[in-house]
Write a protein that binds this DNA or RNA. Structure first.
Length: 416
RNA sequence: GUGGGUAUGGCACAGUUGGUUAGCGCAUCAGUUUGUGGCACUGAGGGUCGUCGGUUCGAAUCCGACUACCCACCCCA
């Protein structure tokens, strides 16, 4: 048997209503913030991600689905959403629109990773990007969107962690300082951290090894080393969050793994879904637009893993309502009645009623059983007698109550 | 890429120190006097016990290899 490729899942009718519920809610709330949907290609030129996300990052250097197409172009399935949206923002001249430009998307992304709880190779993200504002209120706007979404979904046990990782100028100075501080003790660091030291030294703060934690305990924090501009920006972001009564936890250890982030970075984390607890991650990226060939333009956004969001909801007992799909089932006795049933069902559907009939030439009893299984609200039995006298009985499946009427009047008997 | 765990009908599982036709629940289908669902009862279909090889008179059960899935590291959403 051929099975779905490793790290992919089928979203079957058993679950799809949950996705639809969440997606509808995301669209509605986000539209209320004046974000507009954008749809960009699933694949892009590989170079876009190398330049945008950074070719030394893990995501780009070892997790991309890259292939050469028939005309010798290097193509990559998008591992994240931001780079493609920035490309589109530039290509379509959206910088000339009234600013800020507020965009959102719900897309599948692809990363060649080893699957585990909350981590797939094909996964779906909901994300937003806001271009054109360097102001702290933009940071707060975007964060408050996540907060509202979680509130509306009824998600409780997710905390907002936030940090300030400065601008390229103060960060490179800081990295130098940090490397200097740790170089002497380099040999004592774990193998991964020895690698991190030159590649992304700030990551060492995230290491789970107690030895590394001990070694880095007294090292300077990025948070305390940012320039005045960056510090001022961050302080104001927090003031906006305070003003909107959004609780946060300053986590000086947060380091995003994508190169483009500057100043504000944040994540919403749950402890109910295993090791991959980051449901939403984002931050500011004031240099990315320029990096990808545009004029300098501020940006801020986030991405939310929809699978992870649904996991949190499931694990914390949030029930998602399933939509009813059948108002009335028309059961037929014999071939002749079945022709008539087809016509009745067609008319009911034209009138906007969710109607269904049998398609397996089943006995009446089996048809009724099926009607029950698909949760039909009403049933009608159609035999030669009913057709001859134009008299049918509409049965309410919940109460068992029955009412006589003519075939033409069936629709009016239903309380939907 | 590195660890650990699991692998029995569609799904969730049982299978006792290796012993004759591999079980249960749910689901599916049919029936319980033939034109009516939900409950109950009866019955039916459906598994080469992940794959290959080995030990043995005999293997779902022991051994080995492979594969798949799950969890964790790493990384991130």
């Amino acid at each position: 048997m051929i099975t779905a490729p490793k790290g992919t899942i089928d979203i079957t009718p058993k679950d799809v209503y949950k996705w639809q519920y969440v997606e509808n809610l995301l669209r509605k709330i986000t539209a209320g913030f004046n974000f507009k949907e954008i749809r960009t290609p699933v694949f892009e030129h590989t170079e876009l991600f190398q330049r945008g996300v950074g070719d030394t990052t893990d995501v780009v250097s070892k997790e991309m689905y890259t292939f050469i197409d028939k005309a010798d172009r290097s193509i990559t399935l998008r591992p994240e959403g931001t780079a493609g949206v920035v490309r589109s923002f530039l290509q379509n001249g959206m910088f000339a629109d009234a600013q800020p430009t507020k965009l959102y998307y719900i897309i599948p992304c692809y990363r060649y990773e080893k699957p585990q709880a909350g981590r797939l190779r094909e996964f779906r993200q909901f994300g937003v990007e806001m271009f054109g504002s360097y102001e702290p209120s933009a940071d707060a706007d975007v964060i408050s969107l996540v907060k509202l979404i979680l509130n509306k979904l009824g998600v409780k046990d997710i905390t907002l962690n936030i940090n300030n990782i400065g601008c390229p100028k103060c960060r490179s100075e800081y990295n130098k300082k940090l490397i200097e501080c740790l170089e002497a003790k380099k040999d004592k660091l774990c193998p991964t951290c020895q690698e991190r030291l030159y590649k992304n030294p700030m990551r060492i703060f995230d290491c789970k090894s107690e030895i590394c934690q001990e070694l880095i305990k007294d090292a300077p924090k990025m948070f305390d080393s940012v320039c005045d501009d960056c510090k001022d920006h961050f302080d104001k972001v927090l003031k906006y969050l305070d003003a909107m009564e959004i609780a946060y936890n300053i986590d000086k250890g947060i380091v995003r793994g994508l190169d483009y982030y500057t100043k504000t970075v944040f994540e919403f984390v749950s402890n109910s879904i295993g090791a991959q607890g980051t449901v939403c991650g984002g931050g500011r990226y004031d240099n990315l637009v320029e990096e990808l060939g545009g004029k300098p333009c501020a940006g801020i956004g986030f991405a939310m893993g929809i699978e992870r969001l649904l996991l949190v909801m499931e694990n914390t007992g949030i029930e998602i309502p399933e939509e009813e799909t059948c108002d009335i089932f028309v059961a037929a006795l014999g071939e002749n009645a079945d022709f008539k049933a087809a016509k009745i069902v067609a008319d009911l559907r034209t009138a906007g009623i969710k109607a269904e009939k049998d398609h397996l030439a089943r006995s009446l009893k089996a048809q009724m059983k099926f009607a029950d299984k698909i949760k039909a609200k009403y049933t009608v039995v159609l035999g030669d007698n009913e057709i001859e006298n134009n008299k049918v009985t509409v049965k309410n499946m919940k109460t068992g109550e029955q009412q006589e009427t003519s075939i033409e009047n069936i629709a009016n008997m239903l309380e939907i």
